[in-house]
């Protein structure tokens, strides 16, 4: 099924079976990391273009590295250094890259639906690297992969996402991916940061963090942005930290084997205490490593229509 997709834009319509295929593919990609030569010829002759219209450190470098480890040719365009500043439209920039031979366009943009818009108008495969508050499927998948790697199963696991759900593409991708795999998904945050009618997706909504963390297998702590406080969505970072921040006491109330995740970049001392971020339950650094594997898996699966599987060996 996955190999019939031209694009990969979100996890909303990706069935659990397909997500598992991505996870197992990522697992074999991860094996490559332990080799002395961390590169395979799988995507040799393919061109991947990273179009980043928003600042990004980890996602952009992660895609960059993923494509390079598969031997693809990589071009990276960012907003400041491109003709976007001269008024060129998103589509014209993308078309220019396509006409230079891009097989896969990886796009990050601040507008929801931007990746879909390119997908509808380009022949190249489009991989969504984050579109506004809509979706960030590779982040969702790497979070899911991290849980899957630890527990061997997602179905029936209880996962809690904490913080600014309303403005978070990471939350939306985690929610759909986890639900499609049969997990119980909880979200927790002040009501001002929970979008309207979210319960219709099947998630459970909490406003009390201490109740929300009871009996969960993993928590995923979202970055809280100062501008949300400035626009009146909560009174102060200090109060947010008190009500929703994960400190050592809350960490200790988690199940022994529970995982603490954060998609980064972290505000240490706000949504997560340093002692938790660097503590025994944290898998935040593993998430970063898994991100490269997940992105390799998706690049491979999207380009894979003509790619020989044995190239992976």
């Amino acid at each position: 099924m996955l190999k019939q997709r031209k694009d990969f834009l979100g996890l909303y319509d990706v069935p659990g079976e397909d997500i598992k295929e991505i996870l197992t593919t990522a697992q074999s990609m991860k094996d490559i990391f332990t080799r002395s030569i961390k590169k395979v010829p799988t995507l040799r002759g393919k061109t991947v273009v990273n179009l980043f219209f928003e600042p990004s450190t980890r996602t952009k470098s992660s895609f960059d590295l993923a494509a390079k480890r598969l031997s693809a040719d990589v071009m990276s365009i960012s907003k400041k250094s491109s003709s976007v500043v001269k008024g060129e439209t998103l589509l014209d920039t993308a078309r220019t890259m396509e006409r230079m031979g891009a097989d896969i366009v990886v796009v990050r943009h601040s507008h929801p639906g931007a990746a879909r818009y390119l997908a509808n108008n380009l022949q190249a495969a489009v991989l969504n690297a984050g579109d506004g508050a809509h979706a960030h499927p590779t982040q969702g998948l790497l979070d899911i992969y991290t849980i899957w790697e630890k527990f061997g199963e997602i179905k029936g696991k209880k996962v809690l996402i904490i913080g600014d759900i309303a403005h978070s593409r990471v939350a939306r991708s985690n929610i759909w991916g986890l639900l499609n795999l049969g997990a119980e998904v909880r979200v927790c945050g002040p009501s001002t940061l929970i979008p309207n009618r979210l319960e219709k997706t099947g998630v459970k909504i909490y406003n009390n963090i201490d109740r929300a963390i009871e009996d969960v297998d993993a928590i995923n702590i979202l970055r809280i942005q100062l501008e949300r406080q400035e626009s009146g969505l909560f009174p102060s970072l200090r109060e947010y930290r008190f009500l929703y921040g994960i400190n050592e006491e809350r960490q200790n109330n988690l199940k022994e084997e529970a995982l603490v995740m954060h998609p980064g970049p972290m505000n240490r001392g706000v949504e997560i205490e340093s002692s938790v971020a660097d503590g025994r339950k944290a898998v935040i650094n593993e998430q970063v490593t898994n991100g490269v594997a997940i992105r390799m898996a998706l690049l491979y699966l999207l380009a894979g229509k003509e790619v020989q599987h044995e190239n992976l060996a």
């Binding site: 929801p112 639906g113 506004g132 809509h134 593409r169 939306r172 309207n196 009618r197 219709k200 997706t201």
Partner: peptide
């Protein structure tokens, strides 16, 4: 419009 669809699309809602 603010509702289920704005919430899953991630578009800024108008109540």
């Amino acid at each position: 419009h603010e509702g289920y669809y704005s919430s899953i699309l991630g578009l800024k809602p108008i109540p």
